[in-house]
């Protein structure tokens, strides 16, 4: 694998994380606990779709086969998506969704911070842009986790349950494979992000009185296209029109 191909695949990974999270957040549309939060979640979703789009645009350029970002977003099969497992997990209740976004946005914040210093100029630029948005996502989800953790007994229970269920997907975020190895010097080794991420998460969770579960068996594989069963259904719905009318322009 040469650098260009690795970078193409890396952009797919970044794009896929965003696409899948955007799609999951969009499921909240008209289902939020208050109207204000409905709009807030739509904003987060729009940010993710926007980020997916510009990552795919860069990927398409690197690939150089004349594909569009929509070809990349809509016309791949399950095993060709490289998003982290946590992003594809179903929304669950509001605490579950916010916990998912806390864990992911804290990760993305540290990741984009490091990528914004990348010597691949384009990647650095895109990361600076994404970082602004993701900081807000972190703020939004962390404040909610504190509210829910310290709110009522019920909300604390739901929030703790969310973390217990989601924790097993967190190591997957820091996995490295051939792509990362090829890109050493352009991207940071994800393992190096782990301590900072852990600290960020712990600060929020401590404030919220939520405990990190111990001895959890970690599930991994998203970056290698080995997913949970949930992704296929998400793609099925998302790709429906492109698949049903392959010759149509939209």
């Amino acid at each position: 694998m040469d650098t260009k191909e690795a970078l193409y695949n890396y952009c797919l990974r970044l794009g896929d994380n965003n696409l899948v999270l955007g799609q999951r957040l969009a499921e909240w549309c008209s289902n939020g606990p208050i109207l204000e939060e409905d709009l807030a979640m739509t904003n987060l979703s729009l940010d993710h779709f926007g980020q997916a789009e510009f990552m795919y645009e860069y990927a398409a350029e690197l690939e150089g086969k004349g594909r569009t970002c929509d070809d990349i977003a809509f016309k791949r099969n399950e095993r060709e998506y490289f998003n982290a497992l946590i992003t594809e997990q179903p929304n669950g209740d509001f605490a579950f969704t916010m916990m998912k976004h806390l864990l992911f946005s804290a990760f993305a914040q540290h990741l984009y911070e490091s990528l914004s210093l990348s010597n691949d100029k384009r990647l650095a630029e895109l990361s600076v842009r994404a970082l602004k948005e993701i900081k807000y996502h972190f703020r939004h989800s962390s404040e909610w986790i504190v509210r829910l953790g310290k709110g009522t007994q019920e909300s604390a229970m739901r929030t703790q349950y969310a973390l217990n269920e989601l924790w097993m997907f967190t190591a997957d975020l820091f996995e490295i494979n051939k792509i990362d190895e090829t890109l050493i010097g352009i991207i940071v080794d994800s393992n190096e992000l782990f301590p900072a991420w852990k600290k960020t998460i712990e600060t929020v969770l401590n404030t919220a009185n939520i405990k990190i579960p111990e001895k959890v068996h970690m599930l991994k594989g998203g970056y290698n296209g080995k997913h949970t069963e949930h992704l296929g259904h998400l793609l099925c719905e998302m790709q429906y029109l492109q698949r049903a009318y392959p010759n149509a322009k939209w």
């Binding site: 208050i34 204000e36 939060e37 709009l39 807030a40 404040e143 509210r147």
Partner: peptide
């Protein structure tokens, strides 16, 4: 509508 200051600011922003 919001329950606290932080939420009020974010909702206003959104």
């Amino acid at each position: 509508h919001a329950s606290d200051k932080k939420m009020a600011l974010q909702n206003a922003r959104d």
